[in-house]
Simulated assay, not measured.
Amino acid sequence: MLIKRFADAAKYEAPNHWEVTGLRLQGFEDGGPTNQWVGFSQFLPGGGAGPDSTPFEKVYVVLEGEMTVEIAGEISTLGPMDSCTIPPGEIRRIENKTNHICKMLVVMPYPPETT
């Protein structure tokens, strides 16, 4: 078992994201999960990511606030405890269109290893 305290979560920069602070809650450490990592993102008003895609799926879980998700012209708004899965290769854009901070968990598999 690996317990990691919130106070010990390391910041990380995600490509093509703006007005967001990402903290790695679990993953990329000895004794941590072996098939995915968990991030905690705090998006300021107007913050977001994309449009872009990844070669692996990801899951978003909104804990607090709202996040607008746009995929293939379809726009949905996620509220507290709403979640969505973004399939591999799916181009998505997300944006916090409110005046409140959006707090969101992100669960993703590790990127493929390069040799």
Rank of each mutant, 00 (worst) to 15 (best):
Y12N: 02
N16Y: 07
E113P: 11
T21C: 03
V106I: 15
P55M: 05
M108F: 12
V107N: 09
T34L: 14
K97T: 14
H17M: 06
L78Y: 02
R24C: 04
T68G: 01
V38H: 05
A72F: 05
R92D: 00
N96P: 02
T77H: 08
A72N: 15
Y60V: 07
E13T: 08
V38C: 11
C84H: 05
V61A: 02
C102M: 10
P45E: 01
P55V: 10
V107S: 12
A7P: 00
T98D: 03
F28K: 07
F28T: 04
A10G: 06
A7Q: 13
H100G: 08
G39N: 09
G73L: 07
Q26K: 08
E19R: 14
G89S: 08
G79N: 11
R5T: 09
T115Q: 15
P112M: 06
A10K: 08
P111R: 09
T114Y: 06
I94K: 02
A72D: 15
G65W: 00
Y12I: 04
I3Y: 01
R92N: 01
L25Y: 03
K58T: 14
R93F: 11
E90F: 12
T85R: 07
E95L: 10
E74C: 08
G27A: 04
A9M: 03
E66Y: 02
S53N: 14
I101W: 02
G32P: 10
H17Q: 01
L63A: 07
V62Y: 01
V106T: 14
K11H: 11
E13A: 02
P109R: 04
L44N: 05
M81C: 04
N35T: 15
G39E: 10
P88V: 01
N35A: 13
V61L: 12
A49N: 09
H17E: 05
I86P: 01
F28L: 12
K58N: 13
H100F: 04
P15G: 05
D52N: 15
L105R: 15
M1W: 00
V62L: 05
L44C: 00
F43C: 02
E70Q: 14
S76H: 06
G47M: 07
G39Y: 07
G46D: 01
Q26A: 13
E70F: 06
P45M: 03
G39A: 02
E64H: 08
V59G: 04
V20M: 09
W18C: 10
K11F: 05
N16K: 15
T68W: 03
R5S: 11
A7V: 11
G79C: 05
L25G: 07
V61R: 03
T114H: 12
A10C: 02
W18V: 12
T115E: 15
E19A: 14
I86R: 00
L105S: 10
E95K: 13
P51Q: 06
V69D: 11
E64N: 05
T98K: 02
R5K: 13
L105I: 13
K4W: 00
S53H: 09
D30H: 13
H100M: 10
Y110H: 08
Y12T: 07
E13D: 13
M67Q: 10
T114D: 03
N96Q: 02
T54N: 15
A9E: 01
K58V: 11
M81F: 06
E57I: 09
Y60P: 05
E29L: 07
W37I: 09
T21D: 03
R92G: 00
E66K: 12
V61Q: 06
L23T: 12
L25R: 03
E74L: 10
Q42G: 00
D30P: 13
